[in-house]
Design a protein around this nucleic acid. Sequence first.
DNA 1: GACTGGCACTCGCTACAGTCGAGTGCCAGG
DNA 2: CCTGGCACTCGACTGTAGCGAGTGCCAGTC
Lengths: 340, 340
Amino acid sequence: MGLDDRKLAVLRAIVEDYVATQEPVGSRALVERHQLGVSPATVRNDMAVLEEEGYIRQPHTSAGRVPTDRGYRLFVDRLSRVKPLSPAERRAIERFLLGAVDLDDVVHRTVRLLAQLTRQVAVVQYPSLARSSVRHLELVPISTTRLMLVMIADTGRVEQRLVEMPGPIPADDVTDLRRLVNEKLVDTRLSETPPLVQALVDEVSPDLRPAMATLSSVLLETLVERHEERIALAGTANLTRGGLLDFQGSLRPILEALEEEVVLLKLIGEVEESSMRVRIGDENEIDNLRAASVVSTGYGPGSTIVGGLGVLGPTRMDYPGTIATVRAVARYVGDLLAQN
Amino acid sequence: MGLDDRKLAVLRAIVEDYVATQEPVGSRALVERHQLGVSPATVRNDMAVLEEEGYIRQPHTSAGRVPTDRGYRLFVDRLSRVKPLSPAERRAIERFLLGAVDLDDVVHRTVRLLAQLTRQVAVVQYPSLARSSVRHLELVPISTTRLMLVMIADTGRVEQRLVEMPGPIPADDVTDLRRLVNEKLVDTRLSETPPLVQALVDEVSPDLRPAMATLSSVLLETLVERHEERIALAGTANLTRGGLLDFQGSLRPILEALEEEVVLLKLIGEVEESSMRVRIGDENEIDNLRAASVVSTGYGPGSTIVGGLGVLGPTRMDYPGTIATVRAVARYVGDLLAQN
DNA sequence: GACTGGCACTCGCTACAGTCGAGTGCCAGG
DNA sequence: CCTGGCACTCGACTGTAGCGAGTGCCAGTC
């Protein structure tokens, strides 16, 4: 039952070799490539134990061993040190993110950078509105009965929505409405806003009430309930790396999952603390992703978290490298946000 | 050299059967499934001619025939009638697009709808800024030295950009700047704007000049030159339909192409009149897409065009059906935009 | 008791030969 | 000009055989 140090070393060697070569690794190859100091036969015995415990398995009777999800888990938890990034990588990150002018720009650059560095599919969540505060609300008249509502959040998020008013609305009224919503909502967290928004209707003079009613319902609906969350994606072409051996032959389920915002949010949006999260194969709740692994973390200015980011790839991935990259990128993005 | 009616009928039959079954079609099967009124031997002779002319080819010596890109082209140009949509489909389109509240919403719904109806990859370009006029420009103070510039276009497009001012800027100045840019730019086409924007600097009092200078350079850079164009994409999972037989075995180049905004724009953005455009296999300028076909068209309110939309699929696609769907969706979206 | 060398065994992979059949091209006759 | 017939091609499939990587087990050694 107990796994002594050598057995763990064997497991580590198997994972490393398999990740590098993509081929089942046998006992002979193992002793040749790693300084284990024992013979193949001994390694075979250790392998038998590791297999019995469910950390590795044989695709075919006469083939080498391949790590199982459980094996990768053990590897990640106990056998790997996070690789420090090379200075070149650090510089690449800085250079890439430095020119960003905009939240949009930051997110797009980040997601492409992540995809490029990890050579996997990258996902970046925009700063969540639920974790943002209102910085400013703007009302712009579009026609006599239409307003454009623009909300700017402290995280840099900007959301707009067309509002169809119940009747013509004079410029003075727009000014009043603008002043009022700003007075009441600026600096509040959007997640705590609903009661405040509902109360707005009672604050206005009777003739403005219908206008404020639609306005507040739009605010609630759009900014709190609906597409609240935004997501950027890049690097789907990386899924074809490893030529269909990964993902048990079909990209279908993966691509389908990546098209669903809800799924993506589940993947990287559920971050509470800034800790790194690694989900390997079967550990994924989403059925379509049972053949994939996800490495994700939260990011934000300083130690607060405003959103999540991460990458998705085959279970057979370079975990130490990926984890290091994801962590580093998240940190840089956080610093960038802190400057604003 | 001349292709008589029967030969054309044979070509049509080959295309239809191949599209339906995905398998090379032989002379026997052809006379059985289509009422051609002649024997297989005759069909074989016709096939020989069609092959000589480059409209069909044999994957292997002892296999049936498969249309070439040139064959599809002839089919599309002369042999197919556009299928009218079924009432059910029309209803689906209407239902799907009716609830849209927003340009963003319209575009997202449209792209998903297109992907779903055609079962292919759908691409929708947001209304091009170059084809839009300025409806309103808003300046929102974010901090003492930062403004958020929001531009609302007549097409519904909304763009925002953070502007870092050269120095602190008092509220009155913001008001002045706002009034001025609106005065000069509202109702002008953005494509014709650059000289106007440059002239702005000379219109202001000397103390506002530095502020206006950065503002106008940001306007130029962001709204005219840079990410000017936006694109929505859906249905990439549909690429895996037809199990790797389409796209000669590798999705790689396709997925890569779809990640490049520039490429997508080239695909669907180059629409002048509202005519339907069909590019088949080799006709595509983009090398990565030589194994695919693209059906695209312009859309916009009434007969003007503000952007493009279309789908991408295997050369072996149902052209009449796809063309009909793309056209219908474009028309509905145009109508929707006309209402605003 | 732990490790090792040796050995028999398993089984996927590749190569090769043989068969089958869909489909073709061609030709002679209607 | 069309058709039926016929010889031919060649890919797909099947079965067999040999190879070799890799294993599990066992007896022997330190």
